[in-house]
């Protein structure tokens, strides 16, 4: 607990069971922690960004190239005729590029947040930065990646002769629910994953499977199997990928209400993730 006393001196109190509170308490605490450590988050982001591209042959070009490399395998399978994603209004190259970039926000956010504490173990042991700030500072890299992928998507649009809609300008906002979902899972994994080390790899594997019941690389309407069709319809991530992609490529989308409902749900999940994080965060340092 931290507060200013009547003399204006900051007082810090450490005692057991400090983190007993509700969901709202968790959100308030996270807001306080993030505001207090905003300078650190900014500096860490800047450090990682600069260090990432220094002394590399292609430099900042890597940032543009890496989203494209992510879909090369699907495009290869498509163009040699192995992959039959179904006919849609959007050219497949653009379809898979936009879809997989939005999907990539989920494992990206989850991996960044869950690995954030492990990666910053040295800072946890040496400094007094709130752990939530360290976990979330890793997300800065993801947001930077989202901005870069906007440029890459634009290049793909131009290359394929497709004209993007104005929705492309709010792409970060459209991808935000996916980021929030990944963040909520990542927050829980960042603490539980330090106790049971195999938990994060397990969830990563499961996510890889979930991608195949989400219309990322194929068109939903072409699915013949009734069971898989129901599974895709009930999968909330279907709407988090499909609706933003349709808006960006076509300017309109079905199921926008489902998208908004799921998006609200991801906000709730982040609140729950934060609460669980604060309940268990002190177990992390003991296991680094």
């Amino acid at each position: 607990m931290r507060y200013m006393d009547s003399d204006g001196v900051p007082v810090t109190i450490y005692q057991p069971n400090e983190t007993q509170g509700g969901i709202i308490w968790g959100l308030k605490r996270a807001a306080t922690d993030i505001i207090l450590s905003r300078h650190v988050i900014a500096r860490l982001f800047w450090r990682d960004f600069i260090a990432q591209f220094r002394q590399k042959l292609l430099g900042y070009f890597w940032a543009l190239l890496s989203p494209l490399l992510g879909v090369v395998s699907f495009l290869f399978l498509f163009f040699i005729g192995v992959l039959h994603p179904g006919e849609g209004e959007i050219p497949y190259t653009v379809y898979v590029m936009v879809g997989s970039t939005i999907w990539g926000c989920l494992p990206g956010a989850m991996g960044a947040v869950s690995g954030g504490l492990q990666a910053q173990a040295d800072l946890i042991m040496r400094t007094r930065i709130p752990k939530v700030a360290l976990a979330l500072s890793s997300l800065a890299g993801l947001f930077y990646g989202i901005l870069i992928s906007m440029v890459t998507i634009t290049i793909i649009f131009v290359a394929t002769g497709v004209r993007p809609t104005w929705w492309l300008f709010v792409y970060p906002l459209l991808a935000l629910p996916m980021v929030l979902l990944g963040t909520s899972i990542g927050l829980v994994l960042s603490v539980l994953g330090s106790i049971a080390r195999d938990l994060t790899p397990m969830v990563t594997q499961v996510l890889g499977l979930v991608m195949y019941v989400t219309p990322v690389i194929y068109v939903h309407s072409t699915i013949q199997n009734a069971f898989v069709d129901v599974l895709i319809s009930w999968n909330p991530m279907t709407y988090l990928v499909d609706v933003p992609r349709s808006l960006i490529c076509l300017g309109h989308a079905d199921n926008t209400s489902s998208f908004l409902t799921v998006a609200m749900g991801t906000v709730m999940l982040v609140a729950i993730g934060l609460r669980i994080f604060y309940l268990l965060e002190d177990l992390v340092a003991e296991r680094l």
């Binding site: 007082v11 810090t12 109190i13 450490y14 005692q15 057991p16 400090e18 946890i124 042991m125 007094r128 002190d282 340092a285 003991e286």
Partner: peptide, 11 residues
Amino acid sequence: TYSPDKGKVTL
């Protein structure tokens, strides 16, 4: 860095 299991620290 660690949270105490018993007691209290005031700084």
